[in-house]
């Protein structure tokens, strides 16, 4: 791919991108090609006239130096260097709320972020490792037991970005739920059991779809433990893969 219009500064090879070691242009191009060749990509990006409505409605744009417009533009311009930088930084600042779907051109910048994240995770990019570091326990829980985080597991100080109210919510969960009834009353003691059949099915899904492989490069240790747990269980069930 030929070089693209970009900043004079960015044309000079820096030793680090977003604080992580830089890689070759070829490597960056390969990552971009993977994003672009994703089946969903043509439905997520038509053309951008840079109106900024996606930024106007973006909650993350209020708190971070994050712009869904820049995501769409970089992808449209096939700006390999900028896209790589975004994969090492910007994409983890998106909350995946998809408010940006109100794009008048029908673009889906949040969807482009989804694809970029998947490629970042699949290739074990440093930013992906860092972003998922705090989630290894959750990934382990979900993938090994089929259960998810429930509100009563929240430690008041574990998720500072959720705001100071989270402590109050945790402490008064029952009261809050009477005030604002949720769809399920999910806690560690309710809706927590996963039947054997469901769990086996989940293991097969994690393995067959490559979902488990996705975390191999991000957290090798976790990947090893999970793979062992799953294969052991499937062996007990007499399922051969």
């Amino acid at each position: 791919m030929a070089e693209r219009p970009r900043a004079r500064g960015a044309a000079v090879k820096s030793e680090a991108v977003a604080g992580f070691d830089d890689v070759t242009y070829e490597e960056k191009r390969k990552l971009f090609e993977e994003v672009r060749s994703d089946l969903r990509f043509p439905d997520y990006l038509y053309g951008c006239y840079e109106c900024g409505i996606c930024v106007a409605v973006c909650p993350s744009a209020r708190f971070y130096d994050f712009s869904p417009r820049r995501i769409a533009q970089a992808a449209a311009r096939q700006d390999v260097e900028l896209i790589y930088q975004q994969m090492q930084e910007d994409i983890w600042e998106c909350s995946q709320c998809f408010s940006c779907l109100r794009c008048p051109r029908g673009n889906n910048p949040g969807g482009i972020v989804t694809i970029m994240r998947e490629v970042a995770v699949n290739h074990g990019l440093a930013s992906a490792k860092e972003a998922l570091e705090g989630y290894s326990r959750i990934i382990y829980k979900i993938m090994s037991t089929g259960t998810q985080v429930s509100p009563d597991m929240l430690q008041p100080d574990a998720f500072p970005d959720w705001g100071p109210e989270v402590a109050d919510v945790s402490n008064q969960l029952a009261l809050w739920r009477r005030a604002l009834p949720p769809e399920t009353l999910h806690t560690t003691s309710t809706g927590w059991d996963v039947s054997d059949r469901t769990l086996i099915e989940l293991y097969l899904i994690w393995l067959e779809t490559g979902a488990l492989d996705m975390i191999r490069d991000v957290d090798e240790g976790l990947h090893m433990i999970l793979e062992e747990v799953m294969e052991e269980r499937l062996e007990e069930e007499g399922i051969e893969r």
């Binding site: 070089e3 219009p5 970009r6 500064g9 820049r70």
Partner: peptide, 12 residues
Amino acid sequence: EDTTMGRPMEVL
């Protein structure tokens, strides 16, 4: 200038 990206540019 690439104004919407907020950066100067020089392109061949």
